[in-house]
Computed example of a mutant assay.
Amino acid sequence: MDTTKFVHWQDGDSWIGYLAEFPDYHTQGDTLADLEDHLRDLYADLSTGKVAGARRVGELQLP
């Protein structure tokens, strides 16, 4: 099973988060589990090109 990192926090009654690879795209849920479901859907859309021009974070090797 593949994994990806995400950042999350609770704001009042909502859980808000984003995928570390795609920090410009936030989503929210009523619970942490609900947020994780939304993040999975968001990842599917972003990683398959359904969102045109999606910006992502990469890693650069330095000398």
Rank of each mutant, 00 (worst) to 15 (best):
K50L: 13
G58W: 03
R40M: 07
H8W: 07
H8N: 00
Y25N: 06
D13G: 11
R56H: 10
Q10M: 12
L62K: 09
G58I: 07
Y43I: 02
R40Y: 08
A33W: 06
M1V: 12
F6T: 05
G29Y: 03
P23L: 01
T4G: 01
W9I: 04
A33S: 11
W15Y: 11
K50S: 12
L32E: 13
D30F: 07
W15A: 00
T48G: 12
D11K: 15
V7G: 03
L32C: 03
A33R: 07
A33Y: 04
G29W: 00
V51N: 10
T31I: 08
Y43T: 00
F22Y: 09
A20L: 12
D13T: 14
G53A: 14
D37L: 01
V51F: 14
H38C: 10
T31E: 09
A54G: 11
Q28V: 00
D30M: 08
D11V: 11
Y43H: 13
G12L: 05
D2A: 10
V51R: 15
V7P: 00
D41P: 02
L62Q: 12
V57A: 15
G17W: 05
F22W: 07
K5E: 10
Y18N: 06
H26N: 12
A54F: 08
G49P: 04
W9A: 11
A33C: 04
D41N: 14
L62C: 13
Q28S: 11
D37S: 02
L39S: 01
R56N: 05
G49C: 02
Q61P: 04
F6W: 01
D37E: 14
P23F: 03
Y25V: 06
E21Y: 04
T31G: 05
D41Y: 14
D34P: 04
L32K: 15
L39C: 03
L46I: 07
L35C: 07
R55K: 15
D30E: 14
